[in-house]
């Protein structure tokens, strides 16, 4: 699959590690990755930010793009957010649309999760 983002598949879920690539326009590949996983039948995508120092405005823009793109197609959740990133996601309104978990295990454990429409 195209993209520089590392990922881990587990059952019908997949965890994608955003790392710091999300802060560059190249990070847009994440959008295609999410779309492709959902097309392949994965039910849940966890984007993990434990390796991301500080999400910048480009990162925010890319994440909004992902949410818009997968609207109604499946579920995307976030995990491993550092405090500063949680604050940023909160002020730009991302947390209103995406469920956020402490870590990827918690995110994978949760049975029901949804996109913006069900929150």
């Amino acid at each position: 699959m195209a993209g520089r983002h590392k990922h881990r598949e587990t059952g019908t879920s997949v965890v994608i590690y955003a790392d710091n690539y999300i802060n560059d326009i190249e990070g847009e590949k994440l959008e295609e990755m999410c779309d492709a996983f959902l097309e392949k039948g994965f039910k849940k995508i966890v984007i993990d930010f434990s390796g991301t120092d500080l999400v910048n405005s480009i990162g925010v823009s890319i994440l909004i793009g992902i949410i818009e793109k997968i609207k109604g197609k499946g579920a995307v959740v976030f995990s491993g957010l550092k405090d500063v990133n949680f604050q940023i996601f909160h002020i730009v309104g991302l947390t209103r649309h995406i469920r956020v978990y402490n870590n990827e295990e918690d995110a994978l454990k949760e049975g029901a999760c949804a996109d913006g429409a069900s929150l």
Partner: peptide
């Protein structure tokens, strides 16, 4: 082209415009 694209993403990210 890349500079303009990055700049646009920055502006959009700042105001959370889709």
């Amino acid at each position: 082209t890349r500079v303009v694209k990055s700049s646009l993403y920055m502006v959009m990210g700042t105001f959370s415009a889709s």
